[in-house]
Amino acid sequence: MGKETIVIRVEISAMLGLNGKISRRKMDRLAMVITNLHNSGKQVLVVTSGAIILGAEKLKLHNLPDSQLDMQATAAVGQAELIRLYQRSFDEYNQIVAQVLLTSDIIDYPQRVENTRNTFNTLLDMSIIPIINENDPVSTTDIEFDDNYPLALIVAKIARADFIVIKMEMNGKYLIVPGSSVSSIVVDGETELQEKLESICQVMIPGEDQEAIHFPPSIGEILF
């Protein structure tokens, strides 16, 4: 069996400090945790949101944009800032990251899925962590602010991930659901799944409270 592949979904709202701006400290912690997971031998892909909030900050907007068009333009400014922020945070741990922008209609095009999978595999083979976001400026689907959950599922599907971390808060709470290839484990027995989840969490925050693991209300509903 090859390395386990894990998709981590980062909601930018979990990365904000008390002033409502992105907290460097939280980003640093995130980069450390993810790099550490990667160093332990897992293949990690990150799906992030945050382009709009960073764009609004850069443009000194008082309110987040609300029209689709304003969001797309703000995201084009903010994505550049976002990837810069990730680069800086991961640089601290000597970890190289790559930017991958997808539109969610990718799943309708098998050739593109195949291609993107190859890119992911190549990046992971080169020990690079892909930082993935929706390509908002050209996206034809509505931008649902802060909800990159569907994209995380799509990425998990493309990468044939074993697990998706769908909620990650910096106080050590994780919500993990199995990805496309391990759905049978859920059916066969929860112990094995539990063990897998625990082994992942052990790596993420060694020694912290394992009760932090929460099963989603209905795993089956979230599977593809």
Binding site: A98, N115, T119, I128
Partner: peptide, 12 residues
């Protein structure tokens, strides 16, 4: 695939 991987790193 290698070119695309490098592009993902390099574009950032």
């Amino acid at each position: 695939a290698k070119k695309q991987a490098l592009a993902a790193v390099g574009q950032a």
